[in-house]
């Protein structure tokens, strides 16, 4: 860790996520190296944005970090535990407990109410009783200002509302890391600002780590650090600008 130049002002903070020498190939339609020797670390409570042009590999990197994509070379560690090479079921349980996701196209289960959508990962975790999970879900919905829509079917909500419910769902198990794939990509300015405020709040107040892939320069600039990618390389690890 001493070899990294970005730890200089953050020694007191633990490394939460570490990727070492990650290489990734796409085999279809022709063999193509999409990630080239990616190594970086993320600190606890850091609000990190990954930016770059379309096709630079940033989404691919995010899905590797998310543990959903397991076909890569190199190693991935979280909290010092190696994630590379674990079984799909182990990784699913890991995601359930430690990771939260927000996608560009909200991806709520359309048949369920907003509340049920938020509760599902909590019920799956099984750490709390159904009653407690429901209380927690209301708490998270209140946080994203969606409490009054809790019992509406999610397909009846607007795009911005759905995205806020998706954020509440990502937070239900108090994950160590929240990952976003263009979380504001589909939203208007007001909703984007709201998403940004929520992310900032949870990273700075709860110490939860945020990793988002984004095209929105304002959104990226508001975070703690920006990693810039191009053609499968990290061309800038950025600087931790706003440590509080």
């Amino acid at each position: 860790m001493e070899n990294s130049d970005l730890t200089k002002s953050a020694e007191e903070r633990a490394t939460i996520l570490k990727a070492s020498h990650v290489n990734k190939f796409f085999l279809e339609p022709v063999k193509f190296q999409v990630l080239k020797d990616i190594s970086f670390e993320v600190k606890k409570g850091e609000f990190l944005s990954i930016v770059g042009k379309s096709g630079c590999g940033k989404s691919t990197l995010l899905y590797i970090l998310s543990t959903m994509d397991t076909s890569y070379d190199g190693t991935l560690e979280m909290n010092g535990r190696k994630l590379t090479g674990r079984s799909q079921n182990e990784l699913a349980a890991f995601r359930n407990e430690h990771l939260g996701f927000v996608f560009q196209f909200h991806f709520l289960l359309p048949e369920f109410t907003a509340l049920q959508n938020v509760m599902l990962p909590g019920l799956k975790l099984g750490k709390y009783s159904a009653k407690q999970v429901e209380e927690r879900a209301y708490e998270k919905l209140r946080m994203v200002d969606m409490e009054e829509h809790a019992l509406k079917p999610s397909m009846k909500l607007s795009g911005g509302q759905q995205q806020r419910v998706a954020i509440a769902r990502a937070l239900i198990n108090d994950p160590t890391i929240v990952m976003g794939d263009e979380p504001t990509g589909n939203l208007d300015k007001a909703n984007s600002d709201m998403v940004f405020d929520i992310f900032r709040e949870i990273s700075h107040n709860n110490g939860q780590t945020i990793i988002t892939v984004t095209h929105d320069p304002d959104f990226a600039a508001g975070g703690d650090r920006i990693i810039e990618m191009s053609d499968g390389y990290i061309i800038s690890h950025g600087h931790e600008s706003k440590i509080q």
């Binding site: 998310s66 959903m68 799909q88 079921n89 699913a92 349980a93 890991f94 995601r95 359930n96 407990e97 990771l99 996701f101 991806f107 709520l108 289960l109 359309p110 599902l120 990962p121 799956k124 975790l125 769902r169």
Partner: peptide, 16 residues
Amino acid sequence: IKDIAILKATGFDGKD
């Protein structure tokens, strides 16, 4: 298929 993907992303495994 989309719902299955999202369930898996949020930690539901193959058995679920």
